[in-house]
Design a protein around this nucleic acid. Structure first.
Length: 752
RNA sequence: GGGCACUUAGCUCAGCGGUAGAGCACUGCGUUUACAUCGCAGCUGUCAGGGGUUCGAAUCCCUUAGUGCCCACCA
């Protein structure tokens, strides 16, 4: 053995031996209860970051249970990650001077597909570098045909169960990404802005968005506002347009804010939309999907001041705001402005200000899905660890859940399986690339005069069907008028609609014919533990709970374990912009996978933060070296003495090891990995090495007890630092891999 | 605006009713049969502040302050 542990010479070989031994693939044995974990599916295009390295916790659980003798499945996979991936790919396109608008959707989809396929292997290999004992024979990808087939079947089932609807309402739209999002994908940012007071005739209103005044349909005040008792029933006047709108009362108005009067703009503000629907106000849209002012709504026809609108038409929001303020000043309608700090919704992906837009979208009714998901946690059928911190967060979200917008206006993902007949829905808005390469858009009614259906279909980019459009759930001719001219919905699924069914789809559940589900599903579902970061508790965990219960009646996990988040040594979140990112693969190259795994495990509190630094990793690299050298010492022929001799010092060491076995096992059972790792570190180094090996050198201990203690501790350490323990184990018992040995028995009665 | 959690040695954290703990860092010393990616010895604290319960509180209760996080329609 070399005097230094060289992870480079060892890790890859050992991983191969594990894989070839079949240890990662469980034997289905109906007599035994399986242990199942799903790897939180990484994005297929994502190079590994520390978040992925934290799945060490899953590996610890998998290796521990494998050693306990449980048929253990740790199932890997990759997610197509809709918007994330398309965003990354668009940045590549931008480097070549192109954009998504230059391609029809089929071509673009194929291009992204090729891009992802190139990266998918990389991701797999990086997971292997960490030593993760994943069953690669069961690897899945979210876009493989069987998975997509099941997801579409779920869509149809939701439809038939009346849990799905097409709704026209304000959605969170990112003009940059060109798609709507659910409320979870909107971040809020504090911004310094201005609050503008505008003269609306009998009242002044305060607004941060003067550019939306043309879409106002009322002014609202609080019915309890004593200043304005005489106003209700009167008319207010929109500046510049000199249009009158009613003054209404609504309890949602904050008397103390601004002037206490709100301009109600149902087409461009969520609160206003609600107020508008309570009072049956008309909804006017004046912003298009590129974030520009657009006054094509017929309600603007015939206005005397239409010239003003014409000068503004087509301006992007920030420019439009400037221009309108100028006009307001000129007309004397701007009373005053005052600074205001407020939260602005931005796209979580690209940071663009979210524009609430009125769009027809597909929604899932979530209330009845959330109820069993709440009950599963309340009754303890599924436990959240750490409970006190995260169960409340879970309940808060589930109990106030909103209907889920699953429509995304991107190409990278399966299209929603709905078909529109163009002859029945001539007002469908279509965008496509003609055979001559021009970008063409408009209602089908107009387009069909100049373009044959085949050309539109081939070059299709997007379609927007009116809310009341006629549709069917099957491809092929229209079931109503038998027209052959049908087009599939161009909205794709929210990624989480697919990944929310991951426990079912990867284990071979058959949504359309549950009785034909695979043996894997029967055996491994529900899974034992889900280990993930709390930041996707709602996105992913909540949805899996809902889908699992909805489709199978059983919650997908017995335990949801939420692990810590990696921050730098000063407690700052790691991010590219802060420049404090530590690349796990570089760390594995430099110090070995064991060192990184241990640094991510030891001393970590459940659900807290992990303060990671290169120094910490170096510390655990030294630990791996220590274990290596202990093995080197104990396996060298020079030091081996009488193998049968007993010594008075033996009992103390035997007791120490027994207690360590009990303690480690207890910690693992209660998900206290941080303490388990620290205790193992301390006892291995400062007790076994510093104390007992030194005593052995003085002849106070027998060789067999020392060696057996060491081997037992190797077993305990193996889930945490699998490579060095396996390498050194090989010096003592080459006939059997450490990964396949059994966990040491526990002696409960022994106390120190 | 609601809610949750946290505040213990320079750092990261255990302890959760009975005389303050670990690792790292630090300071000395040291190359003795693995390991200098090492060993030995040592130093370090009004357990955030205040009040209460108790024979006894870092541990239970109240309160103040700070930090982190989640939720929410601040126009």
């Amino acid at each position: 053995m070399e005097p230094k542990y060289d992870h480079r010479a060892i890790e890859e070989k050992i991983y191969h031996r594990w894989e070839e031994s079949g240890a990662f693939t469980p034997q289905i044995n109906p007599q035994k209860k399986p242990f199942t974990i799903l790897l939180p599916l990484p994005n297929a295009n994502d190079p590994m970051h520390m978040g992925h390295a934290l799945f060490t916790v899953g590996d610890i659980l998998a290796r521990y249970h494998r050693m306990l003798g449980d048929p253990t499945l740790w199932l890997p996979g990759a997610d197509h990650a809709g918007i994330e991936t398309q965003y990354v790919y668009e940045k590549h396109l931008a480097k070549e001077g192109k954009s998504r608008f230059d391609f029809d959707r089929e071509t673009l989809f194929k291009m992204v597909w090729g891009f992802v396929e190139k990266n998918r292997e990389l991701n797999k290999n990086q997971l292997k570098r960490l030593g993760f004992s994943l069953d690669w024979t069961r690897y899945h990808y979210s876009l493989e045909p069987q998975i997509v087939e099941n997801v579409l079947a779920t869509f149809r089932k939701l439809y038939h169960d009346k849990l799905l609807y097409r709704g026209q309402r304000l959605v969170n739209y990112c003009p940059r990404c060109g798609t709507a999002f659910s409320e979870l994908e909107v971040d809020y940012q504090e911004r310094s802005d201005f609050l503008y007071y505008l003269n609306y005739g009998p009242v002044s209103v305060a607004t941060t968005r003067p550019e939306t005044i043309f879409a106002d349909t009322a002014v609202a005040i609080n019915p309890k506002d004593k200043r304005y008792l005489k106003l209700p029933g009167q008319q207010a006047t929109i500046p510049l347009l000199n249009l009158t709108i009613p003054i209404i009362t609504d309890p949602a108005i904050d008397i103390k804010f601004g002037s206490g009067a709100l301009k109600v703009t149902p087409g461009h503000d969520p609160l206003d939309f609600e107020i508008g629907s309570r009072h049956h106000l008309p909804v006017i849209s004046i912003v298009d999907r590129a974030g520009r002012l657009d006054f094509s709504d017929p309600r603007f026809n015939g206005l005397r001041e239409k010239a003003i609108l014409e000068t503004l038409s087509g301006l992007k929001i920030p420019a439009a705001r400037e221009k309108i303020l100028e006009l307001l000043v000129k007309s004397g309608a701007l009373i005053k402005k005052e600074p205001l700090t407020h939260a602005v919704g931005i796209c979580y992906r690209c940071g663009t200000v979210i524009e609430p837009l009125l769009l027809p979208q597909w929604f899932v009714k979530t209330k009845s899905l959330a109820e069993p998901a709440i009950a599963a946690i309340k009754t303890g059928k599924t436990k959240i660890v750490p409970q006190k911190r995260f169960a409340k967060m879970y309940f808060d979200w589930m109990e106030n859940i909103k209907d889920w917008n699953i429509s995304r206006q991107i190409v990278w993902g399966p299209r929603i399986p709905v078909w529109y007949c163009l002859d029945c829905n001539a007002e469908i808005q279509i965008g496509f690339i003609s055979s001559r390469g021009e970008k063409v858009s408009g209602p089908y009614r107009v387009l069909k005069e100049n373009y044959p259906f085949a050309e539109i279909s081939r070059g299709l980019q997007t379609l927007i069907a009116p809310q009341d459009a006629v549709y069917q759930l099957e491809p092929g001719p229209c079931q109503k008028c038998h027209s052959e001219q049908t087009l599939q919905e161009t909205d794709t699924f929210d990624t989480w609609f697919l990944s929310g069914q991951w426990p079912l789809t990867t284990l071979g559940y058959n949504v359309a014919h549950p009785e034909e589900s695979s043996g894997d599903f029967e055996y491994f579902y529900p899974t034992s533990v889900l280990d993930t970061l709390w930041d996707i508790l709602f996105f992913w965990v909540g949805r899996m709970m809902m889908f699992g219960l909805y489709l199978t009646g059983e919650a997908p996990f017995r335990v949801i374990h939420l692990h810590a988040r990696v921050v730098d040594r000063t407690g700052q979140k790691m991010s590219k912009s802060r420049g404090n990112v530590i690349d796990p693969i570089i760390m594995v190259d430099k110090y070995g996978a064991d060192a990184l795994r241990m640094a991510l495990t030891a001393g970590v509190t459940p659900g807290g933060d992990i303060a990671l630094s290169e120094e910490k990793i170096i510390g655990y690299r030294n630990f791996a070296n220590k274990i290596w050298n202990m093995g080197r010492f104990l396996s060298s022929d020079k030091i081996k003495k009488d193998l049968t001799a007993k010594s008075p010092g033996d009992a103390a060491l035997e007791l120490l090891v027994k207690n360590l076995v009990r303690q480690t096992t207890d910690y693992l059972r209660t998900y206290r990995f941080g303490q388990a790792a620290e205790e193992l570190y301390r006892v291995t180094w400062h007790e076994l090495a510093d104390k007992y090996i030194e005593e052995y050198k003085k002849g106070l201990l027998s060789y067999s007890v020392l060696k057996n203690s060491y081997l037992t501790i190797l077993k305990l350490l193996h889930p945490f630092i699998p490579f060095v323990t396996e390498a050194v184990w090989d010096q003592f018992s080459p006939e059997k891999l450490l990964i396949s040995t059994s966990w040491p028995p526990i002696h409960r009665t022994d106390k120190i």
